[in-house]
């Protein structure tokens, strides 16, 4: 169980931290705790896997990755783990999830592919498709406008 203090820490460090020499000192002060105690909790969050990373989030468009395709696949349940692992093995795939199918939406595996060009994205789709070697139905849903991108609020 997370304590009230843990929740307060998570809430604060999920937002942009101050760009000062000792950012954790500032955060600790806001929380009314010792910097050492804060760092200890952060190390615990990381070690326990609650926290995935504590890093810079880049604007992918500004560094040349202008295209992203959410590729949805219809994969038989019996091989979905294998297919998921194959997709996950590609560097260009940032997210891969199995999701529930819906009426008139026969797709259960989702992979997010990033590329500098549309062609680059499609070539990864092709490589994945070849590796799966089942000719499974899929489609690449290219994003043409980012309407919102922000961190979660805890």
């Amino acid at each position: 169980m997370l304590s009230k203090l843990d929740k307060a820490i998570i809430g604060l460090i999920s937002r942009d931290i101050p760009l000062v020499k000792e950012p954790f000192r500032d955060i600790a002060r806001t929380l009314g705790i010792k910097e050492r105690a804060l760092l200890k909790r952060i190390r615990f969050f990381k070690a326990s896997g609650l926290m995935r990373k504590f890093a810079a989030i880049l604007n992918h468009k500004k560094i040349g990755f202008r295209y992203n395709a959410m590729v949805v696949w219809n994969i038989p349940e019996s091989i979905i783990d294998k297919a998921g692992r194959i997709m996950a093995s590609f560097d260009e795939v940032s997210h891969c999830y199995q999701r529930k199918k819906k009426h008139e939406w026969d797709y259960n595996l989702y992979s997010m592919i990033h590329g500098r060009t549309r062609k680059e994205c499609l070539s990864v789709v092709k490589k994945i498709s070849d590796k799966l070697s089942g000719g499974f139905d899929h489609k690449a849903l290219f994003s043409f406008k980012e309407e919102k991108k922000t961190g979660a609020r805890y």
Binding site: I42, G49, A55
Partner: peptide, 27 residues
């Protein structure tokens, strides 16, 4: 720190923050 400030100003860096696994913190 100067470069980070620049990257933020140019919106190359959106933020520097912790990223949690929602499920693991009961979200």
């Amino acid at each position: 720190m100067e470069r980070i400030a620049f990257f933020k100003k140019k919106d190359i860096i959106r933020r520097i923050s912790a990223v949690f696994s929602p499920r693991k913190i009961n979200f």
